[in-house]
Design a protein around this nucleic acid. Structure first.
Length: 222
DNA sequence: ATCCGGTAGA
DNA sequence: TCTACCGGAT
């Protein structure tokens, strides 16, 4: 039941992983989750934050059982109509649970695409968001939504990190619009991203930083 | 003490 | 377009 995974995507994996296990052990099926008391679900959820999420997740489980025969809808509109599922989560469900070619855009992917293909401006402005969603969709190789999106997220989490991106390990270094020596921002800031009002500047050079968090919690199954 | 983040609702 | 939500990491 990828529903759990869905909801755990705005919290760091390190923190989610153990709870994810516990959650699936306790609610092996969407039916099990649906018939559980919402209060209990909230308790099991703790101490992951945003405690409206378990309530919504429970609601999604119930709706799925009642209206869709216990099978999560594989349609973006239907998915997004459910409280707790936004555009990103819908895309994640479609690509990761149903292996469909649906675009995703979370902060990791947003940062990655913005750096490589844009390099300036605020990735979180309305314009930026629109453009980056379009990019995410345009780049998606047909038939490879699952792998491509997975790679996008892993790369953003492991290499193109927010604080100290490992540019020296990055194969896109030579044409990345945010890479200082790519000759695109000409600012010669010596190792710093040109402008990033959103605050994702900081050293661009690898600093033996730890490679920790990824979001590998998926095992697949709908 | 500050920053970070999908979604919903205002 | 902006904010509340909730904990952990920095």
């Amino acid at each position: 039941m990828l529903v759990s995974e869905i909801m755990l995507q705005q919290t760091q994996v390190d923190r989610v992983a153990p709870k994810y296990q516990e959650f699936l052990r306790r609610y092996p099926t969407i039916e099990a989750l649906a018939r559980a008391p919402v209060q209990e679900v909230k308790r099991v959820w703790y101490p992951l934050g945003y405690n409206i999420r378990p309530v919504r997740l429970h609601g999604i489980a119930r709706e799925t059982v009642e209206r869709y025969g216990g099978r999560l809808p594989d349609d973006a509109r239907t998915l997004q109509a459910m409280k707790g599922i936004g555009r990103y989560t819908a895309g994640a469900v479609l690509s990761f649970a149903f292996h469909r070619d649906a675009p995703i855009l979370d902060t990791n992917v947003r940062r990655l695409l913005h750096r490589v293909f844009v390099g300036q401006g605020d990735p979180r402005s309305h314009r930026g968001t629109t453009a980056l969603w379009a990019l995410s969709e345009a780049l998606l190789p047909r038939g490879k939504g699952y792998d491509f999106n997975q790679a996008l997220m892993d790369f953003g989490a492991l290499v193109c990190t927010a604080r100290k991106p490992l540019c020296l390990l990055c194969p896109m270094r030579t044409f990345c619009h945010a890479y200082p020596w790519s000759g695109r921002d000409g600012s010669g800031t010596g190792g710093r991203v040109k402008a990033a009002p959103s605050g994702d500047r900081d050293a661009l050079v690898p600093t033996s930083g730890a490679i920790r968090r990824t979001r590998r919690a998926r095992g697949g199954r709908a």
